[in-house]
Each structure stands twice: as C-alpha cells, then as structure tokens.
Design a protein around this nucleic acid. Sequence first.
DNA 1: CTTAACTTGTGAATTCATTCACAAGCCTAG
DNA 2: CTAGGCTTGTGAATGAATTCACAAGTTAAG
Lengths: 208, 208
Amino acid sequence: MAKRIADSTVRRLSAYLRFLEDFESRGLETISSEELAQRGGTTSAQVRKDLSFFGSFGKRGLGYSVPELAGRLREILGLGREWKVIIIGAGKIGAALAQYRGFRQRGFLILAAYDANEEKIGRNLEGIPVRDIAQLERDVKQDHPDIAVLTVPGDEAQKVLDRVVKTGIKAILNFAPTQLQAPADVTVKTVNMAMELEGLSYALTNRE
Amino acid sequence: MAKRIADSTVRRLSAYLRFLEDFESRGLETISSEELAQRGGTTSAQVRKDLSFFGSFGKRGLGYSVPELAGRLREILGLGREWKVIIIGAGKIGAALAQYRGFRQRGFLILAAYDANEEKIGRNLEGIPVRDIAQLERDVKQDHPDIAVLTVPGDEAQKVLDRVVKTGIKAILNFAPTQLQAPADVTVKTVNMAMELEGLSYALTNRE
DNA sequence: CTTAACTTGTGAATTCATTCACAAGCCTAG
DNA sequence: CTAGGCTTGTGAATGAATTCACAAGTTAAG
C-alpha cells in the first residue's frame, strides 16, 4: 500500500461503498464509474482515478462487479474487522452517539462511555455502561479499545486527549469545537458543527 | 467580494476566529500570523494568504489587532447578524443539537424542531418546541428561518430535503449519512460520522 | 469473424492550493 | 534621525488534486 492516499480520496471511497451497498441490496451485478460518480456528486474520471490507487478491479466495456468492488473497498477501509470504541463524555452528544445505529452496522462496537459526573456513573446509555473516567487507564489496558470518541467540553478536550493518547489509543474522533494537538502517530478527526454552521453563514452572506 | 473562496479557506477563517476570541478574552491586543498559525495547525504564510483574499488588515512589524481582526472575520463570515434555524427530526441527535450552546453563542437561534411522531409533537426539547412536520410550510412562510438542520433517517433525508428546498430555505446542515442532491443555489453541508469513522478505520489499517 | 457500442485505466494537461522568499512598512532603542 | 529587529502582503514557485482524452479491452449483434 505504498503511496500516501489523500484524505479526500478516502472519504470518497467511503461514499462509494455506501452506494455499492445500496446497489448490492437491490441485487445489481455491475456498476460503471459513471453511475457511481453521479450518485457521489463527482465525475467518472475521479472515480476511476480513486480506485486505480489500489489496483484495477473493473472490466473494460462492462464496469465493476458490485459485490467484488464492495468487498475490496471494505478491505481497503479496514472494515473487515470489528473496531472497539469508547465514548468519553456522557452528555447529550455522547448519548446520541451511543444510540446511533450506524456504528454497530459498520462494525464499530461501543464498549463503554466515561464521565466524571457521579450522577451519570453506573447508569446506562442505551445499553452502554457509563463508567468513572478515573478507571479509564485500567479499562483500556484490559479491553484494548481502538478508537476513542471525545464528547467533552472544548476547554477540557486537550487535557482529555492527552490522557487518552497516553493509554496508547491511536485514533480519536473529536466533537469538541477545538483544534487539538496530538503526536504524529495518532489520527484525530474533528467533527466541528460550529465550523459547518459558519460555512453556511458565509454562503448565505456572500452570494452573487 | 469578487473571488470565489475555497471551502477550506472559510473553515480556517472560522478556526482563526475562535483563537482570536480566546485571545480577546485574555485581553491581548495584537497577534501575529505565526501565532495564529501555530494554534490552527497551519503556517503563517497560509494565514496571511487566507486573510489577503479579503483585504489587508495587519500592520507590518506588529501583526494584527485582535479585536479588529475578530470583527472583520465575523463580518466576512456573516456572524454580525442572527440566523434563524429549524431542526427537522426530533430524535436523539436533534435533541442533542437543540441543547448545544454553541448555536446560541454564535448567533444561531433555534426556532423549533419538527417531527412526524405524534408522541413528540407538542413537547419540548430543552425549551425548543417540537412541532408537527405537517405545518412546516406554513411556519416557514411566517418565521422565515434561514437554515434547516436535518436529523432524519438516511432513507428519508432526500425527500425531506426536497420539501425544505421548496419552502425557499437556502442553507442546510445534514446529519444523515447520505449524499444529497440540491439545486445549485442551495448550500448543503453534510456532517457524516460514518465517514469520519471509516477514515479512522483506514488510518488504523494502513500504517507503515 | 467483424463491427459498433461501451467502459476501464492512465499518462498528460490543467486547475487549484500551499509554500517560498523577499521588498516594504512599522516600531523601539539609542 | 538611524539602525536593527519584526512582520505583513504578495508575486513566483512548487506541489497536489482533478479533469481530459484516448488506447486498449470487453461484449453483443449481425
């Protein structure tokens, strides 16, 4: 897997996989780059270029085998296995995520949520136990979660992140509206609603 | 405001504004592009280039006036006014957003949430009324919301979006894990957690 | 077997975004 | 007033991502 693949490429692969699954469930056998492109709001050349980074699995004149390409994309994206996830911060957003079915559906298993608030500790979020953040290190050592989802207030996010990084977790999904600093071998993805909203505000304001 | 500004640029402006507000609250008067860059995980040249699209408001040798630049960024991003927001879908994610303080703080006023579920209609989400989706068109005509946040299941998202677009709303923040089609004069931003997670999965899988 | 209609895979061309590098401006100290 | 230290603003250079365009396969029909 020599080359460095751009983030935007990976996001598109993820989108293609979603369409393929839709096609798969409707029993279609093959799909062309053009069809895939239209669904994904891009161009057929883009689709082919994206796929070409990983090999060539289409048939000229015919297109791509839907199940084969779907399988190949799952493999590339690392979705062939189960990933263990912990949620840090059992507030409203944490709770909403805990019940989000998309996680389980794609092989992301939520082990637990952590919080410092005594009233929340010991309770349940849609079947997911809320544990004391104090036992984070011990639990990680035992359960080996792969991914930590941060849903803590912005002013605590960096401190919590540092702590999570120290446990050895290498992938973080951050919902705090803060730019976080992490070592190079740790991947942090930030979902920043404030930023998206401001993007909309900008678009509404600057129309020609 | 002649030029077309890239999406990534707008996102960075939004990030700069956040740091500036932090600086502002600590009473600092000026800031250099280098300081701004370090906070935002970018380079000083990038910061200056981003700002230069909108004019030149720094002082050579000194840097930027914090309050002045913050004000200018708010103006560029259209944050000088209040934007009215409606939430469509009063499920867990809708509820989490309804209580999210970041909205109000940045001038986004949530008017109401809409749902089709009779048990939810008439209730309250953190003080925000849940109304019948059937009255959407009537309410929009009266209240003129600027932005609609979609937190409906993926398979309904396109249908709901079409309906929202027909009411004349021009900006949509979509939380459904679906690629949506909208006319060119409507801005749709999608927050896709599944995609971010798969990005993490990819990163964990493809390490050298 | 031949032709026509498709569709892939991929170098080359183009467009877009980031980084470099430096003249020009501003401030402070002496 | 001058010199030295900073920092901006911006063309030019570089780098990255996207689009073009076409040879090379594949299929189906005649």
